[in-house]
Design a protein around this nucleic acid. Structure first.
Length: 773
DNA sequence: CAGCTATAG
DNA sequence: ATTTCTATAGCTG
């Protein structure tokens, strides 16, 4: 018995999969919104297309994706409902999804109107219940709905017991369909089989509002009878074309054809996959659908050739998009524009996209009394900032000095942060996964924020705003400290004993696109990270600290200082982190150290700092030192001090901590900001904003160079103020008549960032050593 | 990583 | 032949 069940687990038929496919989904939703439509031929219209229609309309010959003009000809009394805003369909889709989740957590959405469910566990439970009855009731369970093939074959062909399980599956499918009908008034089809591919395909055998089951013994035949290759999910137009070119015309020929022949044409992976598909083999799991990775909108349109029209479209898209983001509750840190240019040569599916990272501070998050968790809205003024970013991305696709025609405009948010509270919070992450101990949540003075003239928004959970500049809102990895990406990456760099602090250095925080977004104000190209790293490494070697350099932290530039973490940034990506946490066994942490949730912390008025202590601190000492440098570098461009805020004598004793090569000295205080320890000071004056600790460790020649570049930086800033210099911005080349005003407008808007960009745009040594102040 | 293509509904 | 409005996975530089 045990042996048999082990064998059974290795059978490819052990699972019970149900595919649920709503009938003519959009049209059904519209029928619910207006029940009088049920008795009439109904089509749902997007632009000039009838994207779907009910069965009354189908009876008149209306097909999916038919032109409106054509449909009207076929059926003059066709009722058309515009369905370009997908909100009602999205909401209904969500209701369906939630009902399905009551049967099993293993529900995977495929579009708005289809779902896969792995009901194996439910089936097994019912099997056991039946066995416990010990009655005469050992007959196979009644099969509900259609059986493939339709020749009266019974469901007992396979010895592994899959027929029995699938019969139970048909009962479950029936229950699901009934519930959807009663609770939502929706009809659907269901396919029941032992894998996703077959469940999906067999479900459409009988439509609408019916269900069909398929057992393994007839899978091959079933696939063969599909005939058309593109009926197989996974074989799209391109692949079908290639197969047809190769002389493979239908499923049967794909089943028969030489695998080596396929391998030559498609490579090993694809060839094997194609063969498997042809025979109905598919072992891929039902992957539970979580929060979306992107939230986007797009709008096709008749050619647009004026910048302001484009901007207006983007504004509307952004507002609509924010409704979804609000509902979602996560803060996105990347925005992408999607454009289709009118181009007869290229296919209409051809799209160009540009994306940019954005600051979380553009959003405000608040908890909502109503059920659904936190909501996210745009921060004050964020709409205009985002729109500016969007238009700049637009201008990277479209050369405004030439005529253009845009036929599709899209906007999408991605890279979502997620609030995590409780067991998966970041502080627990620190406690459990590392040797770190959360010592205290100390209040960091927000003078560094105030000093640069920014008001901190007490009421929001958003991060403090960065100084006002034309680039405000951009999130640029190399210039702005944002820990979240590093958290994402940390998931895959598990080796480090201190995941918070160490990155394996393989990934650069800087990205080309980030910098090209900045390039309009940053005259110099972005500093090469490797250059900084090498510079730092060399400095270390001067001090003979090579041992510390053999630590997992290879690249100083990739390290983030935990002492600089803003608690409100401590959000993890939802699903990924959930998975990682759940799959990692932790030793339990002291409950007393269970931290306040990031949410509540960040509501307080001051910026917060996580102060941490590590037991093997000596090993990471060098990391911390490196952090000081790196963070300064990251911080300098986005929060470059205005001239008024550079204290000429800032290297006073209070600001400086002791110069000491002994690592243990660091254990008392990692965050220099909180250090009361004034220590003995080096004689060399330290440039403003540079960590004296760091400064003092530099070779004399570098110190001198640093001071020199500091002075020149001051001079530049002074000059900028004196001249009222504005940053040069953007392409202001010859504009044709219709776009001239746009260009002027564009230039006028460039004013914001003047001093900053001039003062620190030089790629000076000083900039790299600016401290986080 | 950024951007594109293929895929699916 | 190809359209609409999404969303994801995977490839490439």
């Amino acid at each position: 018995m045990d042996f048999a069940s082990v064998l059974q687990k290795n059978e490819p038929h052990q699972r019970t999969i149900i595919h649920i496919d709503m009938d003519y989904f959009y049209a059904q939703v519209e029928e619910i919104r207006d029940p009088t439509l049920k008795s009439r031929p109904l089509g749902v219209q997007q632009k000039n297309i009838v994207v779907t229609c009910n069965y009354n309309a189908r009876a008149k010959g209306i097909k999916k994706l038919m032109l409106v003009s054509e449909a009207k000809k076929l059926c003059p009394d066709l009722v058309l409902v515009v369905g370009e805003d997908l909100t009602p369909y999205r909401q209904m889709s969500q209701k369906i999804f939630e009902i399905l989740l009551n049967y099993t957590p293993l529900v995977e959405k495929l579009g708005f109107d289809e779902n896969f469910m792995d009901v194996s566990a439910l089936v097994e439970k019912r099997e056991q219940e039946k066995n416990q009855l010990e009655s005469d009731d050992i007959d196979a369970p009644t099969v509900v709905g259609h059986i493939y093939p339709s020749d009266g074959t019974t469901l007992n062909a396979c010895r592994c017991g899959c027929a029995y399980r699938l019969a139970l599956g048909t009962q479950i499918a029936q229950e699901i369909r009934e519930e959807l009908s009663i609770k939502l008034g929706l009809t659907c089809c269901a396919g029941i089989s032992y894998n996703k591919l077959l469940a999906k395909l067999v479900g459409s055998q009988y439509k609408p509002n019916q269900q069909t089951v398929l057992v393994s013994t007839h899978a091959e035949q079933f696939m063969r009878e599909l005939c058309d290759l593109n009926r197989i999910t996974g074989i799209g137009q391109k692949t079908e074309c290639l197969l047809l070119e190769s002389g493979v015309n239908n499923v049967e020929e794909l089943q028969r054809c030489d695998i080596d022949f396929l391998k030559k044409k498609f490579g090993f992976e694809t060839a094997t996959k194609l063969k498997d598909l042809a025979f109905g083999r598919d072992n891929c799991a039902v992957r539970p659908t979580g929060k979306p990775k992107t939230i986007g909108l797009e709008d096709s349109c008749k050619p647009i050739s004026v910048r302001t029209d484009v901007e207006e479209r983007f504004r509307l898209l952004l507002l609509r998009l924010m409704e979804q983001v609000a509902e979602d509750g996560r803060i996105p840190i990347c925005i992408k524009v999607v454009l289709r240019k009118f181009d007869l040569q290229k296919k209409s599916s051809h799209r160009e996209t540009k994306q940019a990272n954005i600051l979380p501070s553009l959003f405000k998050s608040y908890s909502c009394a109503d059920s659904g968790g936190p909501k996210v809205v745009l921060a004050d003024g964020a709409q205009e900032k985002l729109l500016k970013i969007v238009m700049r991305l637009f201008e990277r696709v479209v050369d405004l000095s030439k005529p253009f025609n845009i036929t599709l405009i899209g906007l999408a948010f991605s890279k979502f942060q997620q609030r995590k509270v409780g067991s998966s919070s970041i502080a627990n992450f620190l406690i459990k996964k590392t040797d770190l101990e959360v010592q205290s949540i100390t209040s960091l003075t927000n003078t560094d924020v105030d000093a640069i003239g920014v008001t901190v928004d007490d009421t929001s959970h958003s991060t403090p705003n960065l100084p006002s500049s034309d680039n405000e809102g951009f999130r640029s990895s190399p210039t702005t400290f944002q820990p979240s990406d590093q958290f994402y990456r940390r998931r895959t760099t598990a080796a480090s004993p201190i995941p918070m602090l160490v990155d394996n250095g393989s990934e650069s925080g800087a990205t080309n696109s980030d910098f090209s977004d900045f390039s309009e104000t940053e005259v110099e190209p972005s500093p090469k990270k490797s250059r900084i790293s090498r510079l730092l490494l060399n400095k270390r070697r001067c001090f003979g600290n090579s041992a510390a350099y053999n630590s997992p932290c290879e690249s100083a530039a990739d390290v983030a200082s935990p002492s600089k973490l803003r608690v409100c940034d401590l959000r993890l990506n939802s699903r990924d982190s959930d998975r990682d946490f759940s799959m990692t066994s932790f030793t339990s942490a002291s409950p007393n150290n269970t931290p306040t949730s990031p949410l509540s912390i960040s509501t307080t008025a001051t910026t917060q700092t996580l102060s941490v202590q590590t037991s093997n601190l000596t090993d990471s000492l060098e990391d911390f030192r490196a952090n000081a440098l790196v963070f300064s570098e990251q911080h300098s461009m986005s929060s470059s001090p205005s001239i008024n805020n550079i204290p000429m004598d800032s290297c006073t004793s209070a600001e400086q901590s002791e110069t000491n090569n002994n690592a243990k000295q660091y254990t008392t205080s990692i965050t220099n900001q909180n250090t009361k320890n004034t220590g003995n000071l080096a004689n060399i004056p330290c440039p403003a904003g540079v960590d004296p600790q760091v400064f003092n460790e530099l070779p004399v020649d570098v110190q001198n160079e640093l001071i020199a570049s500091w002075r020149s930086s001051l001079a530049a800033a002074a000059a900028a103020v004196a001249n009222g210099t504005l940053s040069s911005l953007g392409p202001s080349g010859a504009a044709n008549a219709s776009q001239k005003s746009n260009v002027v407008n564009n230039t006028a808007k460039a004013g914001g960032g003047g001093v900053n960009s001039t003062a620190t745009q030089k790629n000076t040594l000083y900039r790299y050593f600016l401290r986080n102040k």
